[in-house]
């Protein structure tokens, strides 16, 4: 009897493998093979010089040496991180505040669900169209300049946002803030709602102020989710592409100050066809995001215990 039962279980469990086939097959075909090819390309000299194809010729790790010694990558990495930080600092501060308000049962905001719907909205907007909109609005002859010049009279000639390094970076950061603070708010709110309410009740009995409750109870207990939010946002920030690409027409102007790593990668793949350097850059990005992903995995798994 026992033997028969075990035999039956085993025969069912082979279905676990069968149901995994589509995922594994598609993953291997569309992700793993491309990854291996990307790594392979990174060891070759392979680019277009005008109309002539150079290579492919095996050159070992020379692409990586060029990548790290020429300084472009560092510059673009710095641009990416700067624009990420410009957006992320207001994003996390606003999200913490809103999350605390939304999860505060005593505050009882009547329009809370309406607010959540509105602040999440920009996250679903097509980033390229949203950037095109911002470009049109902030362009030299656009409505923002018209507003500042002819309605509010703060300036007397158009301010050219996209020729000014801080202005361009702030606009990119601001758009990232707009698109992501709703999402972060909802994540942090969910984390705050997961905190044991008896802790808040105890604090109330002891006469703690809302500020004390926030710093002494909410924030420490929220740490795992905060780490998760910071790292996933950093991974997202490293992928920054659509917004600066459209705003600067792929040039990363002014003076390459809005050029991100993925815009540079896009240029290697699409325009300059420098597959060797592009491959090396991809591998570096793969390693960085891989390490960050491991941290995310560790954090979200540690939370379960």
């Amino acid at each position: 009897m026992k033997q028969a039962k075990r035999g039956k279980v085993v025969s069912f469990n082979k279905w676990g493998y069968i149901f995994l086939i589509p995922f594994i097959a598609v993953y291997c075909f569309f992700q793993l093979i491309p990854l291996v090819m990307t790594i392979y390309y990174s060891f070759f000299e392979n680019y277009m010089s005008g109309m002539t194809q150079i290579g492919p010729r095996f050159i070992g790790i020379e692409n990586y040496i060029t990548l790290f010694s020429k300084g472009d990558m560092l510059k673009y990495a710095l641009n990416t991180v700067i624009m990420w930080i410009i957006g992320f600092i207001p994003q996390i501060l606003v999200s913490l505040l809103l999350g605390a308000w939304f999860s505060d049962t005593r505050l009882r905001l009547r329009a809370a669900s309406f607010y959540k719907v509105v602040i999440y909205l920009p996250n679903l907007i097509m980033a390229s169209a949203f950037s095109m909109l911002f470009f049109a609005l902030f362009s030299e002859t656009g409505p923002i300049n018209a507003l500042l010049m002819n309605t509010l009279h703060v300036i007397n000639k158009p301010f050219i946002f996209f020729q000014d390094i801080p202005a361009t970076r702030i606009l990119v950061g601001f758009m990232n803030f707009l698109m992501w603070f709703g999402n972060t708010t909802i994540l942090l709110m969910a984390g705050m709602l997961g905190i044991d309410p008896s802790l808040y009740e105890a604090a109330e009995v002891d006469g703690a102020t809302p500020t004390q409750v926030f710093w002494r109870i909410t924030l420490p207990l929220l740490r795992p989710i905060l780490v998760y939010v910071v790292i996933t946002s950093l991974i997202g920030g490293l992928q920054m592409f659509d917004v600066p690409q459209i705003l600067t027409n792929g040039k990363g102007s002014p003076a390459n100050s809005a050029m991100t790593l993925i815009m540079w990668l896009n240029r290697h793949i699409g325009t300059s066809k420098n597959f060797g350097m592009g491959g090396a850059l991809s591998v570096v990005l793969f390693i960085i995001t891989g390490v960050l992903s491991m941290v995310v995995y560790k954090v979200s798994n540690g939370k379960e215990d």
């Binding site: 990307t38 990668l265 290697h268 991809s282 995001t289």
Partner: peptide
């Protein structure tokens, strides 16, 4: 992210 394997 998928971008890191985009080239391949």
């Amino acid at each position: 992210p998928t971008q890191v394997t985009a080239l391949g």
